[in-house]
Design a protein around this nucleic acid. Structure first.
Lengths: 341, 341
DNA sequence: TTGTAAGCGTTATCAC
DNA sequence: GTGATAACGCTTACAA
């Protein structure tokens, strides 16, 4: 069943059927109804392939993430897809993993499918070296690129991100204000946002007169149990710390497990902050004070930017917004001097 | 740049270019190389829309989930996408929420895009009433449907699922064997798998001589704090229980929080089991004994079924596999008689 | 082995 | 308002 069949049954030309389908106002009400009836009767649905060939678009965008099962990314995917659908776009999901070659292949795949735009979730996609990012910039020559929680400068590239520097500085400030004297930072990788977090942490430490800051940041790859081991090792190597700033909630969970295994009282002896305000923060006991980096707002904003861009509006290449601290049970309630462990 | 431009530059016909592109063996090595050089030089990529119009497929499948940010669904999406991509399919992701109308609209959307197959994640899509499922059965007339962790009988519908009845019976058996005398069950909804879990729980209770089983199952919708409140209420209403069988890990986390708030010792006074073997089970302290329902295996199997189906093989409409218990810290180590709280 | 030409099912530009 | 008809860019018989 195609547009020609419909046109025959309705006694009109395919042009008229097409007009009805696309809501043109240059069709008489009578003709329109006649055509609609035939369409209805036959449950006719226009062929998407032919349509996209003619229009040169399928109203589809690509979503690239490294791992959709990561709680933060999963959240982002959810809101992105919802917003895109609300604006009549479908989402093509690609989980690339962390290998550059895979990322490039996936991006090529999306481009070859003629997606209308590409969204990168997370700053893992922005490499430290400019050369490593050329594949994104190349892509942007054909297709608009939106980077969520990362930053990349280039033509047709738009970055939407939480101010991780300030947020991490503020959450570290919070620990100091609640009596911590020697916080340490746990981070996952030195991605763009990872670096910002480290810098925010160091800034707060400097502001509070903590020395040797470069030795107070620890990389924690791998699963949650690894975090505990790394903290254990740090302690055994003589690193003194009475609080942990974690750059995601899973790392914070690891810190909770460390504290519990050492019988440290949380938050009296030991304070912990997470990041992302994910379900992990409230599933932990005690529940973790965390940073809400407004995933939903980020996604709504990103899709809004995309829609405006298609309307040829001039847009900011970078949109940055502030996070907010959500206090739970791993930080002290009010200001009093703490006692380093 | 299209196939015609390439053919001119290479001094051949578009048919030959097409043959080269599609790896036909009916092209002389010399011609092939000549064409490949021109393609390379121009970085030509064939138009996906025209291609799909001709072939009547875009090698795309639809993935329908209710909420991609749910940890279980996020896992499933990850493995599904990976397997599909390994078999040269791209994934169109749709997050429908829990409203039937939305589900139907999304399914229509996917069908109108001519996806090659549709995957439903989770049994939320299978309604209790046959009428509520007609939209799926209708879709299956055109497009093969794969239901992951749910069951629906119909032409062109394939169900791949963990044996939730047996798994829940076994994990309840485990609690009895570790000294529990009066377990209760927490479930999310009475979806297909939800029902199976309830039945498995009741069977185990009957086998162990527990009466009044129908009053020992509790529905726990909503966020994690709600679970604690429901358990609290149950206790205050005089329900006696010394262990909780939760039908997902998040519910189990709620049970952990309940136990900790009552100062019950886990697992000595109170035992808990989760379900799904998700990150939540290990992020909890104590870590939760849970059921591994083999998400990865399920996805690999589902995609394998799809591939075989396209090869016109005859396939089982239902593929069921067993789960396995992963013991952590919320169940006792060995058999000894317990003391009901 | 290669080329010609007829689809595939739309949209859109013309005439009328 | 409506109807021919030419794109859109590819695949694939069928011919040569």
């Amino acid at each position: 069943m195609n547009i020609y069949d419909i046109s025959v049954q309705a006694g009109v030309s395919i042009a008229t059927v097409s007009r009805v389908l696309n809501g043109s106002d240059k069709v008489s009400p009578k003709t329109r109804q006649k055509v609609l009836d035939v369409i209805e009767k036959n449950r006719y649905v226009p062929n998407a392939f032919a349509r996209s060939l003619g229009l040169n678009t399928m109203s589809t965008v690509g979503i690239l993430c490294s791992d959709s099962s990561d709680v933060y990314q999963a959240q982002t995917i959810y809101y992105l897809e919802r917003e895109l659908r609300n604006n009549s776009y479908t989402s093509m999901l690609c989980c690339t993993g962390y290998d550059l070659r895979q990322k490039q292949e996936y991006l090529q795949l999306l481009l070859s499918r003629n997606v209308d735009a590409v969204f990168f979730i997370g700053s893992h996609f922005v490499e430290a070296s400019a050369k490593g990012n050329s594949y994104i910039l190349n892509a942007a020559q054909k297709t608009p690129v939106f980077i969520l929680n990362g930053e990349l400068t280039g033509e047709n590239v738009y970055s939407i991100l939480c101010d991780d520097f300030t947020s991490t500085r503020e959450i570290t400030d919070l620990l100091f204000s609640r009596g911590s004297r020697m916080p340490i930072l746990l981070y996952r990788t030195l991605s763009y946002s990872g670096q910002k977090k480290v810098q925010g942490f160091l800034k707060s430490c400097q502001d509070h007169g903590v020395d040797n800051t470069e030795k107070r940041t620890f990389s924690c790859p791998g699963p949650v149990e690894n975090t505990r081991l790394i903290l254990q090792a740090a302690k055994e190597q003589g690193v003194l710390f009475d609080s942990v700033v974690a750059t995601d909630d899973e790392l914070a969970v690891g810190a909770v497990k460390y504290a519990l295994s050492c019988s440290l009282r949380i938050p009296d002896d030991f304070q912990i902050t997470g990041y992302n305000n994910s379900v992990l923060a409230t599933c932990s006991t005690p529940e973790i004070t965390t940073l809400d980096n407004r995933v939903e707002f980020m996604c709504v904003t990103a899709v809004s930017l995309m829609v405006q861009m298609f309307q040829k509006r001039d847009l900011p290449a970078k949109t940055m917004f502030s996070g907010s601290i959500v206090e739970h049970q791993t930080t002290r309630q009010n200001k009093n001097s703490g006692q380093p462990s």
